[in-house]
Design a binder for these strands. Structure first.
Lengths: 212, 212, 212, 212
DNA sequence: TATGAATGAGCTTTCATTCAT
DNA sequence: AATGAATGAAAGCTCATTCAT
């Protein structure tokens, strides 16, 4: 009984998870308005009805997608381990790992971009999303403190400014890839340029925080 | 007859321009899929039928919006005048003016963001948009050359990398404003922080191009 | 041009009127929730889309039906002509004509019944319906005044009470016909009983208003 | 075992009764088509599945509601005790008690009204409902006989006509309350008018049955 | 050049019901 | 006796577009 019951439960969770995975792809691919409930359902092994059964409506499904996407990124950021490095090395490493994360999760960047087009109204509606802790920022804050303590970094640096600078660089490369390519005929995600951009970001960050 | 005809023509142009202006606002506001042909028409002094008469369909209207938006920004960039300054001053000035342009045209940034969500497929379909000259980049290229010539700037700097860095910073501040605020409770467009960010951008750029 | 334009106009009105007629039948037949937009459309010579084009949504269509139904009844009541009769004859005549009106318009009674099940919320939402003049009540008021003036009728009779009594009798006969028949095996609308009920109503009314 | 079984049975009956009570409220409130199986279940302490387990489907549940509602009213009518009064007093008393019953059970009147909108098709489908004895009518029949015997009442009065007249008056006051209020701004159920209407009904009935 | 009326296709959502245990 | 998960069918509604003049 228990086994069967948990089998049922597991199936329900599996169904839910499958819908969420497909929806993530669709919303990231087409945007909130462009995504079709019918198409999400069709790419699922269940029916459209199940989607409403589990998530209520299109918007709630989208919010669930956002929540899971942010949770995934936060979990990834939890694994950042640069405390054993000296501040400068740690700072470069953090920038590079952030760079890697962004490159590895273009769908997440698309979802964030889409959510910005909607003025973050769905995040505002989600208890799970507003005011979420940010591991990367916390790590960064500690590195800056260490660098300031040993005199290598400047005083008065706002961790959030550094985080913004890193994010801007990483996000732009992915988020604006297509217009950039259309206009400058350069693919910012070309693997051949990857190392160059990664180093460039580290350089920028270190130049910004280093004391002169 | 001629007078009346040209009057008609002028009216026609006025109607066209009005539709384009309204459509720009709507597409920037709601995205391509979120914008409604009915609503664009309703906010116009003409009818929906005219919209089809002048632009053919929703997509062509959207492309016309994009074309006009890019043309406007290019025209603005044409007015950049920093050739009389020394390279470092010119570089900072260029960064700051670009910063100002972005801040002054949030709708343009939204349109570009939206177009990226659509993988720039509409730009690709527009002869007027693919391979457009980029005044800002040309100015930047000349400044780098002057700076390199007098030994103040490093060798081997790719103008497009500098342009990307500036764009990333400026675009991110506007494009990701809403999620940033939802998560960090900080408004990147807060007028009180404007000067700080503007200076920060100039610093970053100069540090990057300056020879050590 | 004018002729053609008015032909168009007339067609539009004809379409609107047809939808309204079919909708009246369906709503009266099945109730608000039981009626189906698809079915109303199917019984029309146009499509479902037109129904939304002209009326906006199901509820607005239903309100339009109610408005037209009440307007029709009011128009009918306008034709009441009993002023030339002496008060007692006029009173009986009014009761009988009201009786006839109700019998002739069972759909109207059904619509009113349905609207009462919905607590008259749609009437409340209609500017055209709240606070509508009531010809029958006005006629009744004048008859009572005449009868009181010549001493035949009692003093202190509230016209609205008499109207209520008449309405209750006439409405009940139609509105509760089916449960009455199921329980008492008597059809209150049986033509053979028609004259009996009609006279009974006149008697009741006259007994109520006559001075003793 | 037996104890548990009967406990279970008692629980089962309690569950059944609870569902029925909730369903009565929902059907009376929203009508047959407007009521939602999901909502009835949600307002219950059990699940939707139980509702199907006990009643089969929505229609059978609705019929069970009707049956219980009529049974309750019949039981109430069984308590009518006017045989000890003289015919005229008994007649007025019967009218007044009927008036009170209707006022005390608006949900029953709503259910009857709803059932009439459905042309009593569900009553027809219920063995328990078609051809049910009617205590009030039986009492009324006996009063009329007594009144006729002592010469106070007219000959040839059909008991069912008197019952209809009483019912019409009482039902209308509740059933048509909302449209009446919307159109005449008068609440027929206003407690301040209660006594007036109650007396008016008694007067009407007595005037109708009394010999001249 | 201009336009009010019309529309097919497809959208999101809801409903009563049943399956599998 | 009891139940959580699942569902087919159909509901109300919206969309970009075109017809007819």
């Amino acid at each position: 009984m228990v086994a069967e019951s948990s089998a049922l439960t597991r199936d329900a969770e599996r169904t839910r998870a499958e819908i969420l995975a497909v929806a993530t792809r669709e919303f990231a691919d087409k945007g909130y308005d462009g995504a079709r409930v019918d198409e999400i359902a069709a790419k699922t092994s269940t029916t459209k009805r199940m989607l409403y059964y589990y998530f209520g409506n299109k918007e709630k499904l989208y919010i669930a997608v956002l929540e899971q996407a942010y949770a995934g990124i936060r979990a990834l950021e939890q694994t950042l381990d640069v405390e054993h490095l000296d501040p400068a090395e740690a700072m470069r490493k953090l920038a590079e790992l952030t760079f890697d994360h962004h490159e590895a999760h273009p769908d997440f960047i698309r979802l964030v971009t889409i959510e910005n087009i909607h003025r973050a109204e769905h995040i505002a509606r989600s208890a799970a999303l507003s005011g979420l802790a940010n591991p990367a920022l916390e790590v960064l804050t500690r590195i800056l403190a260490r660098g300031r303590a040993d005199g290598r970094f400047r005083a008065g640096i706002d961790p959030l400014d550094v985080h913004m600078m890193i994010s801007a660089f990483c996000v732009f490369r992915t988020a604006n890839r297509h217009t950039w390519h259309a206009i400058f005929q350069r693919d910012m995600l070309d693997p051949k340029r990857r190392k160059h951009y990664r180093t460039m970001l580290g350089d920028l960050v270190l130049e910004y925080v280093t004391a002169r």
